[in-house]
Design a binder for these strands. Sequence first.
DNA 1: TCTAAAACATGATTTAAAGCATAATTTGGA
DNA 2: TCCAAATTATGCTTTAAATCATGTTTTAGA
Lengths: 233, 233
Amino acid sequence: MAQHNIDVQNSFEGVCSLFHNLQSGEKELIRRNFTCSFYRKGEIIYKEGDKPSGLVCLTKGKVKIFKEGVGGRDQIMRMAKPIGFIGYRALFADENYIASAQALEDSVICVIDRTVLLEILKMNAELTLHILRSVATELGFSNNRTVTLTQKHIRGRLAESLIFLRDTYGFEDDGQTIKVYLSREDLANLSNMTTSNAIRTLSAFSEEGVLELDGRRIKVLDVHKLERISDLG
Amino acid sequence: MAQHNIDVQNSFEGVCSLFHNLQSGEKELIRRNFTCSFYRKGEIIYKEGDKPSGLVCLTKGKVKIFKEGVGGRDQIMRMAKPIGFIGYRALFADENYIASAQALEDSVICVIDRTVLLEILKMNAELTLHILRSVATELGFSNNRTVTLTQKHIRGRLAESLIFLRDTYGFEDDGQTIKVYLSREDLANLSNMTTSNAIRTLSAFSEEGVLELDGRRIKVLDVHKLERISDLG
DNA sequence: TCTAAAACATGATTTAAAGCATAATTTGGA
DNA sequence: TCCAAATTATGCTTTAAATCATGTTTTAGA
């Protein structure tokens, strides 16, 4: 942990910047109940069924949130980037986690103690209302996702995932390479298809000149065409 | 409207009972900004893209919430029963509706003015936290739904829908007939399949002795078998 | 550096579900 | 009451996607 040189103070300020209308006393309370830890690429941060111990925040790295599906097939529900919260749904619903979180790169994870946070929310209605708004917005995404994952065809689903990854992580300096490097399996689990079909469809996009592939590096050559494929289903 | 004899006072009390920790001043504020209206079976209560004017509550009847899908195929997202809120996601996210609401039977709909409600929430953190919990719980349902709708096979999806309808509306006095009468098309749109397949699969369940069908009347003869079909996918 | 395992790639086959056609039944207005 | 439209029902065909098979490449650990 310590040997990875986590800048706790910096992480703390980053996390606090996500809260609106945080009073100085509340901030101090959080500081005293704030822990950070390091996760190596591939490590599990929490598992489906675990009980949330607090509000989890990713301050460095990338994390996937996934649910184990019917035939052992995973479904990636969310991709997290810094600085952002994860696992808050279970915390606020007062339930155990219904999905697992795994580091896709070396990551820094901070936790605000559950009890302390809920005490603050009970006193700060404006802050709670902001969080309510975020969760409501995410529920909207989730509902949209349900429809597209069930109704779009394979090409549309994969195209949508690629656009989603670009929106989430952006491009590298070349302005074309998506700034995340997923396995074909993860790409498939994000798009509700088998790994074979993810590979096949990526190859097709490459042959059509929409993408350029180099291992896990995905360069978007024709954004408009990709968007058209996504929209048509 | 009036000729349908809406008991506004009774509706008002019912709606207020859904709020936790509501102060008497707040209750009075709601009363003065509370309207009720009657919707005949089949009437649209709000449409995708409309702007929420307030918090909508169903105090009598049944309502389906659905999104228009890719090929004009609808996806039913939620089934509402009295007394319960609908359309609150858009309100709290400060967005337009992303789904439409339609009365499945003659229904009474009450609305609490948007501004008044938000003012109350800004002052009442405990109430806001309760709502946050509800929305977080629903986000969990939505995430589960995404996985089952995408990964279960047709029989599993339909069986799950029937169990969901039983959980939502319960049984008639005979303890077997599901207390909601949907068209095959609605049943299909709830279960992410074509109408043909809903009809076919219902017939199959009937032949297997799991259900007894009489028009839109669905009698569950073998709950355990139905649950087994749902669980196996 | 070598080797085993994992990931990637591509083609062939199977299958679940959609689509299409036709007909019977029910429903809701004129 | 009658008729047109909508809904329900069933069989057949097509198709999108999963599954299976095989081979290649890459990666990570001994």
